[in-house]
Nucleic acid binder design. Structure first.
Lengths: 190, 190
DNA sequence: TGACTTACTTACTAATAAGTAAGTATATTT
DNA sequence: AAATATACTTACTTATTAGTAAGTAAGTCA
Protein backbone atom coordinates (compact mmCIF):
# COMPACT_ATOMS: atom_id res chain seq x y z
CA UNK A 1 0.00 0.00 0.00
CA UNK A 2 1.58 3.20 -1.24
CA UNK A 3 0.53 6.35 0.60
CA UNK A 4 -1.44 9.13 -1.06
CA UNK A 5 1.28 11.54 -0.06
CA UNK A 6 3.85 9.50 -1.94
CA UNK A 7 1.54 9.17 -4.96
CA UNK A 8 1.14 12.95 -5.04
CA UNK A 9 4.90 13.45 -5.11
CA UNK A 10 5.35 10.89 -7.88
CA UNK A 11 2.68 12.51 -10.06
CA UNK A 12 3.96 16.02 -9.34
CA UNK A 13 7.43 14.88 -10.34
CA UNK A 14 6.12 13.53 -13.66
CA UNK A 15 4.12 16.72 -14.28
CA UNK A 16 7.11 18.95 -13.55
CA UNK A 17 9.31 16.96 -15.88
CA UNK A 18 6.69 16.66 -18.60
CA UNK A 19 4.89 20.04 -18.75
CA UNK A 20 6.81 22.14 -16.19
CA UNK A 21 6.27 23.54 -12.70
CA UNK A 22 4.29 26.59 -13.83
CA UNK A 23 2.05 24.60 -16.18
CA UNK A 24 0.58 22.07 -13.76
CA UNK A 25 -2.06 22.64 -11.11
CA UNK A 26 -3.37 20.84 -8.05
CA UNK A 27 -6.40 19.91 -10.18
CA UNK A 28 -4.19 17.84 -12.50
CA UNK A 29 -3.00 15.72 -9.59
CA UNK A 30 -6.43 15.52 -7.93
CA UNK A 31 -8.04 14.23 -11.14
CA UNK A 32 -5.44 11.55 -11.65
CA UNK A 33 -5.81 10.29 -8.08
CA UNK A 34 -9.60 10.71 -7.98
CA UNK A 35 -9.42 12.88 -4.92
CA UNK A 36 -10.34 16.52 -4.35
CA UNK A 37 -8.15 19.54 -4.74
CA UNK A 38 -8.16 20.23 -1.03
CA UNK A 39 -6.84 16.76 -0.24
CA UNK A 40 -3.56 17.77 -1.80
CA UNK A 41 -3.44 20.91 0.29
CA UNK A 42 -3.85 18.64 3.32
CA UNK A 43 -0.56 16.93 2.47
CA UNK A 44 1.23 19.96 0.98
CA UNK A 45 -0.20 23.26 2.12
CA UNK A 46 1.45 25.23 -0.70
CA UNK A 47 2.60 24.40 -4.20
CA UNK A 48 6.10 25.43 -3.14
CA UNK A 49 6.02 22.77 -0.40
CA UNK A 50 5.07 20.15 -2.96
CA UNK A 51 7.76 21.34 -5.35
CA UNK A 52 10.34 21.19 -2.59
CA UNK A 53 9.22 17.67 -1.66
CA UNK A 54 9.69 16.56 -5.26
CA UNK A 55 13.28 17.79 -5.27
CA UNK A 56 13.94 16.19 -1.87
CA UNK A 57 12.55 12.88 -3.13
CA UNK A 58 14.75 13.12 -6.23
CA UNK A 59 17.81 13.81 -4.08
CA UNK A 60 17.02 10.84 -1.85
CA UNK A 61 16.64 8.51 -4.82
CA UNK A 62 19.93 9.76 -6.27
CA UNK A 63 21.76 9.16 -3.02
CA UNK A 64 20.24 5.69 -2.71
CA UNK A 65 21.27 4.85 -6.26
CA UNK A 66 24.85 5.99 -5.86
CA UNK A 67 25.08 3.96 -2.66
CA UNK A 68 24.11 0.76 -4.49
CA UNK A 69 26.83 1.46 -7.06
CA UNK A 70 29.47 2.01 -4.38
CA UNK A 71 31.37 -1.22 -4.96
CA UNK A 72 31.39 -1.06 -8.77
CA UNK A 73 34.50 0.09 -10.69
CA UNK A 74 34.45 3.88 -11.11
CA UNK A 75 33.75 3.71 -14.82
CA UNK A 76 30.68 1.54 -14.21
CA UNK A 77 29.43 4.01 -11.63
CA UNK A 78 29.63 6.85 -14.14
CA UNK A 79 28.01 4.71 -16.82
CA UNK A 80 25.19 3.86 -14.41
CA UNK A 81 24.69 7.60 -13.85
CA UNK A 82 24.42 8.22 -17.59
CA UNK A 83 22.09 5.24 -17.90
CA UNK A 84 19.63 6.88 -15.47
CA UNK A 85 18.84 9.53 -18.07
CA UNK A 86 17.88 6.99 -20.71
CA UNK A 87 14.84 6.05 -18.64
CA UNK A 88 13.34 9.51 -19.15
CA UNK A 89 13.19 9.05 -22.89
CA UNK A 90 10.22 6.73 -23.00
CA UNK A 91 7.78 8.83 -20.94
CA UNK A 92 8.61 12.11 -22.68
CA UNK A 93 10.12 13.60 -19.54
CA UNK A 94 13.18 15.77 -19.23
CA UNK A 95 15.38 15.71 -16.13
CA UNK A 96 14.32 17.67 -13.04
CA UNK A 97 17.33 19.97 -13.33
CA UNK A 98 16.48 20.87 -16.92
CA UNK A 99 12.87 21.59 -16.08
CA UNK A 100 13.30 23.42 -12.78
CA UNK A 101 16.57 25.06 -13.79
CA UNK A 102 14.96 26.74 -16.77
CA UNK A 103 12.14 27.97 -14.50
CA UNK A 104 14.58 29.01 -11.77
CA UNK A 105 13.72 32.72 -11.89
CA UNK A 106 10.01 32.04 -11.35
CA UNK A 107 10.55 29.47 -8.59
CA UNK A 108 9.82 30.09 -4.88
CA UNK A 109 12.89 30.54 -2.68
CA UNK A 110 12.56 27.21 -0.86
CA UNK A 111 12.69 25.39 -4.17
CA UNK A 112 15.69 27.35 -5.39
CA UNK A 113 17.65 26.47 -2.29
CA UNK A 114 16.75 22.78 -2.55
CA UNK A 115 17.67 22.77 -6.23
CA UNK A 116 21.08 24.22 -5.46
CA UNK A 117 21.73 21.47 -2.93
CA UNK A 118 20.71 18.84 -5.48
CA UNK A 119 23.01 20.32 -8.10
CA UNK A 120 25.85 20.43 -5.63
CA UNK A 121 25.34 16.79 -4.63
CA UNK A 122 25.36 15.60 -8.23
CA UNK A 123 28.42 17.56 -9.37
CA UNK A 124 30.31 16.72 -6.19
CA UNK A 125 29.60 13.03 -6.71
CA UNK A 126 30.79 13.13 -10.33
CA UNK A 127 33.89 15.20 -9.58
CA UNK A 128 34.80 12.91 -6.70
CA UNK A 129 34.62 9.85 -9.00
CA UNK A 130 36.85 11.52 -11.60
CA UNK A 131 39.37 12.82 -9.07
CA UNK A 132 39.65 9.42 -7.47
CA UNK A 133 39.87 7.66 -10.82
CA UNK A 134 42.70 9.94 -11.89
CA UNK A 135 44.60 9.20 -8.71
CA UNK A 136 44.27 5.42 -9.13
CA UNK A 137 45.01 5.70 -12.84
CA UNK A 138 41.61 4.36 -13.87
CA UNK A 139 40.89 7.59 -15.71
CA UNK A 140 43.36 9.63 -17.70
CA UNK A 141 41.72 12.35 -19.79
CA UNK A 142 42.99 15.82 -20.61
CA UNK A 143 39.99 17.67 -19.24
CA UNK A 144 39.76 18.55 -15.56
CA UNK A 145 37.30 16.62 -13.41
CA UNK A 146 35.10 19.72 -13.29
CA UNK A 147 35.10 20.04 -17.08
CA UNK A 148 34.25 16.37 -17.48
CA UNK A 149 31.44 16.65 -14.95
CA UNK A 150 30.03 19.71 -16.73
CA UNK A 151 30.26 17.99 -20.08
CA UNK A 152 28.21 15.05 -18.84
CA UNK A 153 25.50 16.93 -16.95
CA UNK A 154 25.19 19.55 -19.69
CA UNK A 155 25.10 17.01 -22.48
CA UNK A 156 22.41 14.89 -20.86
CA UNK A 157 20.27 17.80 -19.67
CA UNK A 158 20.28 19.47 -23.07
CA UNK A 159 19.80 16.26 -25.05
CA UNK A 160 16.58 15.47 -23.21
CA UNK A 161 15.27 18.97 -23.96
CA UNK A 162 16.35 19.00 -27.61
CA UNK A 163 15.05 15.50 -28.18
CA UNK A 164 11.54 16.96 -27.99
CA UNK A 165 12.18 19.78 -30.43
CA UNK A 166 14.23 17.87 -32.97
CA UNK A 167 12.72 14.50 -33.69
CA UNK A 168 16.11 12.80 -33.76
CA UNK A 169 17.27 10.43 -31.01
CA UNK A 170 19.49 13.06 -29.55
CA UNK A 171 19.88 11.45 -26.13
CA UNK A 172 20.90 8.05 -27.44
CA UNK A 173 23.73 9.60 -29.46
CA UNK A 174 24.82 11.80 -26.57
CA UNK A 175 25.03 8.81 -24.22
CA UNK A 176 27.17 6.97 -26.77
CA UNK A 177 29.42 9.98 -27.33
CA UNK A 178 29.96 10.49 -23.61
CA UNK A 179 30.57 6.83 -22.82
CA UNK A 180 32.94 6.58 -25.79
CA UNK A 181 34.94 9.51 -24.46
CA UNK A 182 35.12 8.09 -20.95
CA UNK A 183 36.00 4.61 -22.20
CA UNK A 184 38.76 5.95 -24.40
CA UNK A 185 40.43 7.46 -21.38
CA UNK A 186 39.98 4.44 -19.18
CA UNK A 187 42.85 2.10 -18.36
CA UNK A 188 41.32 -1.36 -18.43
CA UNK A 189 42.96 -3.96 -16.23
CA UNK A 190 44.37 -1.12 -14.10
CA UNK B 1 10.64 55.60 -33.42
CA UNK B 2 10.30 51.92 -32.51
CA UNK B 3 6.77 50.52 -32.89
CA UNK B 4 4.73 49.28 -29.94
CA UNK B 5 4.39 45.94 -31.68
CA UNK B 6 8.15 45.58 -31.81
CA UNK B 7 8.51 46.66 -28.18
CA UNK B 8 5.99 44.00 -27.15
CA UNK B 9 7.99 41.30 -28.92
CA UNK B 10 11.24 42.44 -27.32
CA UNK B 11 9.74 42.41 -23.82
CA UNK B 12 7.99 39.08 -24.40
CA UNK B 13 11.31 37.64 -25.54
CA UNK B 14 13.04 38.83 -22.36
CA UNK B 15 10.20 37.50 -20.19
CA UNK B 16 10.26 34.10 -21.89
CA UNK B 17 13.99 33.81 -21.44
CA UNK B 18 13.99 35.14 -17.88
CA UNK B 19 10.90 33.61 -16.19
CA UNK B 20 9.47 31.34 -18.92
CA UNK B 21 6.50 31.26 -21.29
CA UNK B 22 4.00 29.93 -18.73
CA UNK B 23 5.07 32.35 -16.01
CA UNK B 24 4.53 35.68 -17.79
CA UNK B 25 1.21 37.37 -18.53
CA UNK B 26 -0.01 40.15 -20.80
CA UNK B 27 -0.19 42.31 -17.66
CA UNK B 28 3.60 42.07 -17.24
CA UNK B 29 4.12 43.53 -20.70
CA UNK B 30 1.34 46.11 -20.39
CA UNK B 31 2.78 47.45 -17.14
CA UNK B 32 6.27 47.80 -18.57
CA UNK B 33 5.00 49.71 -21.62
CA UNK B 34 2.42 51.73 -19.68
CA UNK B 35 -0.37 50.57 -21.91
CA UNK B 36 -3.46 48.46 -21.24
CA UNK B 37 -3.79 44.71 -21.43
CA UNK B 38 -6.13 44.91 -24.41
CA UNK B 39 -3.60 46.91 -26.42
CA UNK B 40 -1.44 43.80 -26.56
CA UNK B 41 -4.37 41.73 -27.74
CA UNK B 42 -4.79 44.29 -30.52
CA UNK B 43 -1.32 43.42 -31.83
CA UNK B 44 -1.32 39.73 -30.88
CA UNK B 45 -4.79 38.29 -30.46
CA UNK B 46 -3.57 35.25 -28.55
CA UNK B 47 -0.58 34.50 -26.37
CA UNK B 48 0.36 31.77 -28.84
CA UNK B 49 0.56 34.38 -31.61
CA UNK B 50 2.89 36.47 -29.50
CA UNK B 51 5.00 33.45 -28.62
CA UNK B 52 5.25 32.52 -32.29
CA UNK B 53 6.25 36.09 -33.17
CA UNK B 54 9.05 35.94 -30.62
CA UNK B 55 10.47 32.79 -32.21
CA UNK B 56 10.13 34.28 -35.70
CA UNK B 57 11.96 37.41 -34.57
CA UNK B 58 14.72 35.28 -33.05
CA UNK B 59 15.06 33.30 -36.28
CA UNK B 60 15.27 36.48 -38.33
CA UNK B 61 17.96 37.91 -36.09
CA UNK B 62 19.94 34.65 -36.31
CA UNK B 63 19.74 34.63 -40.10
CA UNK B 64 20.80 38.27 -40.25
CA UNK B 65 23.74 37.59 -37.96
CA UNK B 66 25.00 34.60 -39.91
CA UNK B 67 24.75 36.63 -43.10
CA UNK B 68 27.06 39.34 -41.71
CA UNK B 69 29.58 36.63 -40.80
CA UNK B 70 29.47 35.08 -44.27
CA UNK B 71 32.90 36.26 -45.39
CA UNK B 72 34.76 35.40 -42.17
CA UNK B 73 36.90 32.26 -41.91
CA UNK B 74 34.73 29.30 -40.79
CA UNK B 75 36.33 29.14 -37.36
CA UNK B 76 35.50 32.80 -36.75
CA UNK B 77 31.90 32.18 -37.78
CA UNK B 78 31.56 29.40 -35.22
CA UNK B 79 33.27 31.52 -32.58
CA UNK B 80 30.85 34.36 -33.33
CA UNK B 81 27.99 31.91 -32.80
CA UNK B 82 29.34 30.89 -29.40
CA UNK B 83 29.94 34.54 -28.54
CA UNK B 84 26.20 35.26 -29.02
CA UNK B 85 25.41 33.22 -25.91
CA UNK B 86 27.76 35.24 -23.71
CA UNK B 87 25.43 38.22 -24.08
CA UNK B 88 22.66 36.42 -22.19
CA UNK B 89 24.76 36.12 -19.09
CA UNK B 90 24.46 39.71 -17.93
CA UNK B 91 20.64 39.99 -18.02
CA UNK B 92 20.02 36.64 -16.33
CA UNK B 93 18.41 35.18 -19.45
CA UNK B 94 18.77 31.68 -20.84
CA UNK B 95 18.56 30.99 -24.56
CA UNK B 96 15.14 30.74 -26.23
CA UNK B 97 15.69 27.08 -27.09
CA UNK B 98 16.45 26.21 -23.47
CA UNK B 99 13.41 28.05 -22.19
CA UNK B 100 10.86 27.01 -24.82
CA UNK B 101 12.34 23.56 -25.33
CA UNK B 102 11.87 22.69 -21.66
CA UNK B 103 8.25 23.91 -21.89
CA UNK B 104 7.69 22.16 -25.23
CA UNK B 105 4.95 19.82 -23.97
CA UNK B 106 2.85 22.71 -22.66
CA UNK B 107 3.35 24.89 -25.74
CA UNK B 108 0.64 25.57 -28.36
CA UNK B 109 1.10 23.77 -31.67
CA UNK B 110 2.02 26.88 -33.68
CA UNK B 111 4.89 27.56 -31.33
CA UNK B 112 6.13 23.99 -31.44
CA UNK B 113 6.27 24.05 -35.23
CA UNK B 114 8.11 27.36 -35.26
CA UNK B 115 10.56 26.11 -32.65
CA UNK B 116 11.35 23.05 -34.74
CA UNK B 117 12.12 25.25 -37.73
CA UNK B 118 14.41 27.40 -35.59
CA UNK B 119 16.24 24.34 -34.28
CA UNK B 120 16.62 22.99 -37.78
CA UNK B 121 18.04 26.29 -39.07
CA UNK B 122 20.60 26.49 -36.30
CA UNK B 123 21.83 22.90 -36.51
CA UNK B 124 21.85 22.99 -40.30
CA UNK B 125 23.97 26.14 -40.22
CA UNK B 126 26.47 24.63 -37.78
CA UNK B 127 26.68 21.29 -39.57
CA UNK B 128 27.17 23.03 -42.92
CA UNK B 129 30.11 25.03 -41.50
CA UNK B 130 31.75 21.90 -40.12
CA UNK B 131 31.17 19.83 -43.27
CA UNK B 132 32.61 22.59 -45.43
CA UNK B 133 35.54 23.13 -43.08
CA UNK B 134 36.37 19.45 -43.16
CA UNK B 135 36.35 19.46 -46.95
CA UNK B 136 38.68 22.46 -47.18
CA UNK B 137 40.84 21.08 -44.39
CA UNK B 138 40.16 23.99 -42.09
CA UNK B 139 38.68 21.62 -39.50
CA UNK B 140 39.95 18.16 -38.68
CA UNK B 141 38.37 16.68 -35.56
CA UNK B 142 37.42 13.08 -34.84
CA UNK B 143 33.77 13.79 -34.09
CA UNK B 144 31.22 13.96 -36.88
CA UNK B 145 29.81 17.36 -37.82
CA UNK B 146 26.53 16.38 -36.18
CA UNK B 147 28.27 15.38 -32.95
CA UNK B 148 30.21 18.63 -32.91
CA UNK B 149 27.06 20.64 -33.55
CA UNK B 150 25.23 18.83 -30.73
CA UNK B 151 28.14 19.34 -28.38
CA UNK B 152 28.07 23.09 -28.95
CA UNK B 153 24.31 23.70 -28.78
CA UNK B 154 23.92 21.35 -25.82
CA UNK B 155 26.86 22.80 -23.95
CA UNK B 156 25.70 26.37 -24.34
CA UNK B 157 22.02 25.71 -23.68
CA UNK B 158 22.74 23.75 -20.51
CA UNK B 159 25.42 26.12 -19.22
CA UNK B 160 23.02 29.07 -19.28
CA UNK B 161 20.47 27.05 -17.30
CA UNK B 162 22.95 25.65 -14.79
CA UNK B 163 24.61 29.03 -14.33
CA UNK B 164 21.50 30.08 -12.42
CA UNK B 165 21.40 27.07 -10.14
CA UNK B 166 25.10 26.78 -9.43
CA UNK B 167 26.62 30.14 -8.73
CA UNK B 168 29.75 29.36 -10.75
CA UNK B 169 30.50 31.00 -14.10
CA UNK B 170 29.48 27.87 -15.91
CA UNK B 171 28.96 29.54 -19.30
CA UNK B 172 32.33 31.24 -19.39
CA UNK B 173 34.12 27.96 -18.83
CA UNK B 174 31.96 26.15 -21.38
CA UNK B 175 32.73 28.78 -24.04
CA UNK B 176 36.44 28.38 -23.35
CA UNK B 177 36.25 24.59 -23.43
CA UNK B 178 34.36 24.58 -26.73
CA UNK B 179 36.57 27.15 -28.41
CA UNK B 180 39.67 25.30 -27.19
CA UNK B 181 38.40 22.08 -28.75
CA UNK B 182 37.60 23.76 -32.06
CA UNK B 183 40.88 25.65 -32.15
CA UNK B 184 42.85 22.49 -31.45
CA UNK B 185 41.38 20.92 -34.55
CA UNK B 186 41.88 23.93 -36.75
CA UNK B 187 44.62 24.10 -39.36
CA UNK B 188 45.91 27.64 -39.21
CA UNK B 189 47.34 29.07 -42.44
CA UNK B 190 45.26 26.44 -44.32
C1' DT C 1 -15.53 67.36 -45.84
C1' DG C 2 -16.66 62.67 -44.86
C1' DA C 3 -15.33 57.79 -44.60
C1' DC C 4 -12.17 54.85 -43.01
C1' DT C 5 -8.04 52.99 -40.61
C1' DT C 6 -4.82 52.71 -36.79
C1' DA C 7 -3.84 52.27 -32.18
C1' DC C 8 -5.39 52.25 -28.58
C1' DT C 9 -8.78 52.54 -23.64
C1' DT C 10 -12.63 51.20 -20.76
C1' DA C 11 -15.06 47.82 -18.92
C1' DC C 12 -16.25 43.51 -19.03
C1' DT C 13 -16.42 37.88 -18.94
C1' DA C 14 -15.45 33.17 -18.12
C1' DA C 15 -12.13 30.08 -16.60
C1' DT C 16 -8.77 28.64 -13.71
C1' DA C 17 -5.43 29.26 -10.08
C1' DA C 18 -3.92 28.57 -5.19
C1' DG C 19 -5.55 28.44 -0.85
C1' DT C 20 -8.97 28.03 3.32
C1' DA C 21 -12.58 26.96 6.77
C1' DA C 22 -15.61 23.81 8.41
C1' DG C 23 -17.46 19.42 8.45
C1' DT C 24 -17.22 14.02 8.27
C1' DA C 25 -16.06 9.12 8.33
C1' DT C 26 -12.77 5.87 9.96
C1' DA C 27 -9.37 4.23 12.69
C1' DT C 28 -6.46 4.56 16.97
C1' DT C 29 -5.54 5.55 21.60
C1' DT C 30 -6.65 6.27 26.55
C1' DA D 1 -16.86 4.47 25.83
C1' DA D 2 -14.89 8.94 25.06
C1' DA D 3 -11.33 11.61 23.03
C1' DT D 4 -8.24 12.30 19.49
C1' DA D 5 -5.80 11.99 15.18
C1' DT D 6 -5.85 10.90 10.25
C1' DA D 7 -7.34 11.57 5.77
C1' DC D 8 -10.07 13.32 3.54
C1' DT D 9 -14.79 16.20 1.22
C1' DT D 10 -17.78 20.17 0.55
C1' DA D 11 -18.09 24.62 -0.31
C1' DC D 12 -16.01 28.57 -0.44
C1' DT D 13 -12.79 32.99 -1.45
C1' DT D 14 -9.64 35.87 -3.73
C1' DA D 15 -6.57 36.72 -7.38
C1' DT D 16 -5.16 36.28 -11.84
C1' DT D 17 -5.57 34.65 -16.32
C1' DA D 18 -6.49 35.06 -21.47
C1' DG D 19 -9.66 37.03 -24.15
C1' DT D 20 -13.63 40.24 -25.90
C1' DA D 21 -16.93 43.97 -27.10
C1' DA D 22 -17.67 48.56 -27.58
C1' DG D 23 -16.07 53.02 -27.68
C1' DT D 24 -12.63 56.91 -28.86
C1' DA D 25 -9.01 60.10 -30.46
C1' DA D 26 -5.85 61.06 -34.04
C1' DG D 27 -4.41 60.57 -38.36
C1' DT D 28 -5.02 59.19 -43.64
C1' DC D 29 -7.25 59.15 -47.87
C1' DA D 30 -10.77 59.92 -51.63
Amino acid sequence: MISTRKKIVVIADQLIRSIGYNAFSYADIANKLNIKNAAIHYHFSTKADLGKAVIEETREKFNQNTKTWEDLPLIEQVKAFIEMYRKNEKNDCICFMGSLGSDYNSLPDEMRAELQIAHDEITTWLITRFDEGKKTGEFNFDESSVEMSNMITSGLLASLILERVAKADNLEKMCETLIKRIDKNYSYGK
